[in-house]
Amino acid sequence: MCHGSVGLVARALEAVGIPTVSVFVRAFRHTAVQLQVPRVLVTPHLMGRTIGPVGDHVRQRQVVEAALRLLVEAAQPATIQGFVPS
């Protein structure tokens, strides 16, 4: 449900010219396909911990940086990329 909501907001923003990157968890990767969400980073985390586990600031920062790279580098619509922990 929430992933679909984010997809709809991302599409609306892109429609007025604002580029977006969205972070999803794996369990809802399919929603990114169904809604053709512009740029999606998919993390291997539990629902409700999309950016990373509680207190794991290193992982959280890695996810934020990976999402920003995707925002810059994605060259086509509906680009879905899996987050690979370093």
Binding site: A12, P19, S22
Partner: peptide, 20 residues
């Protein structure tokens, strides 16, 4: 969502980072 998008465009937001 379209209303929010217009609000953010009016506030000169250039890019958005969304979290589901």
């Amino acid at each position: 969502a379209p209303r929010w998008a217009e609000h953010m465009a009016a506030r000169e937001v250039d890019a958005a980072f969304l979290v589901a």
